Computed example of a mutant assay.
Amino acid sequence: MWIVAAILVALVAVLHGYILVLEMFLWDKGPGRQLSGFDSEMAAATKPLAANQGLYNGFLAAGLVWGLILGRQDGHGVLVFFTSCVVIAGLYGAATANRRILLAQALPGALALAAVLIAGR
């Protein structure tokens, strides 16, 4: 089960790395504007806010990678913490910004968290 958990966590980390790139570097370009649905003026106006969000997503990705590097036993607590953070961020984002975040962020995080918990120590 640890292999499944590690794969799910790695996929969530990659997702958050991708979100970092979208929000920090591509927010006012095609991919970022497609994600947000903003016109060029709104994308330019919100670029600093998006970059800040992107940085936080990068921290989530870094924490997940850190937990994976630590391995099954030593990384268990780190993985539980960071996958829980992903789920909470996804729930909050779905409640306050866009319900799609529930499926795009919270669900993958919850699946990874469940796998980590099942894999145990």
Rank of each mutant, 00 (worst) to 15 (best):
Y18I: 13
A97Y: 14
A44K: 15
L111D: 04
V65P: 02
V80Y: 03
G67T: 04
N98R: 00
M1D: 14
L49E: 09
A10G: 01
A95S: 13
A119G: 06
P108K: 00
L91G: 00
R72C: 09
V4E: 09
G54L: 03
A94Q: 03
A114Q: 09
V86P: 01
G54M: 07
V21D: 10
A115E: 05
P48M: 12
R72T: 10
F25G: 00
A97E: 04
M1F: 13
I7S: 14
T83Y: 03
W27T: 10
V14G: 05
G54T: 05
V12Q: 03
I19Y: 14
K29Y: 10
V80K: 04
I7V: 15
A104W: 06
N98L: 10
V9M: 05
G109L: 06
G109Q: 00
A44I: 05
L91I: 15
R100D: 10
R72D: 15
A5T: 09
V78D: 14
T46Q: 13
A94N: 12
A61V: 06
W66V: 11
M1I: 13
I118W: 09
V14L: 06
N57H: 06
G30W: 04
V9E: 05
A97I: 15
A62D: 10
Q34V: 09
L91C: 03
V65Q: 04
L79P: 15
F38C: 07
I88M: 10
R100W: 06
F25R: 11
E23H: 14
I3H: 13
L55M: 14
G71Y: 01
H76R: 02
G32T: 03
A43C: 05
M24A: 14
Y18S: 12
Q53K: 11
L113N: 09
G54K: 02
H16D: 01
A6C: 02
T83Q: 09
G90Y: 01
L35E: 06
F25C: 11
F38G: 08
L103A: 14
L103F: 13
A62W: 04
A10P: 06
T83V: 12
A89M: 11
L102P: 01
D28R: 15
S40A: 15
A13L: 10
G32P: 05
G67E: 01
S84C: 07
V21M: 12
Q105N: 09
G32S: 10
M24R: 13
V80I: 15
L102C: 01
A89V: 11
L26T: 05
G77C: 06
I118V: 14
G109C: 07
F81Q: 05
M24Q: 14
I118K: 08
D39E: 15
T46V: 08
A97P: 03
Q105I: 04
G120D: 04
A106R: 00
A89Q: 10
V116P: 09
K29H: 11
Y92W: 13
M24I: 05
G71W: 09
G17I: 07
A112Y: 04
L22P: 13
L107Y: 08
M24Y: 14
S40I: 10
N98K: 07
A115G: 08
P31E: 01
S36L: 08
A45K: 15
D74R: 14
R72Y: 04
E23Y: 07
A61R: 01
K47M: 12
L68V: 00
A104Y: 05
V87E: 04
V9S: 11
G54F: 14
T96K: 07
A13Q: 00
L107D: 00
N98T: 05
N57C: 11
I3M: 11
S40R: 15
L68S: 00
G30P: 01
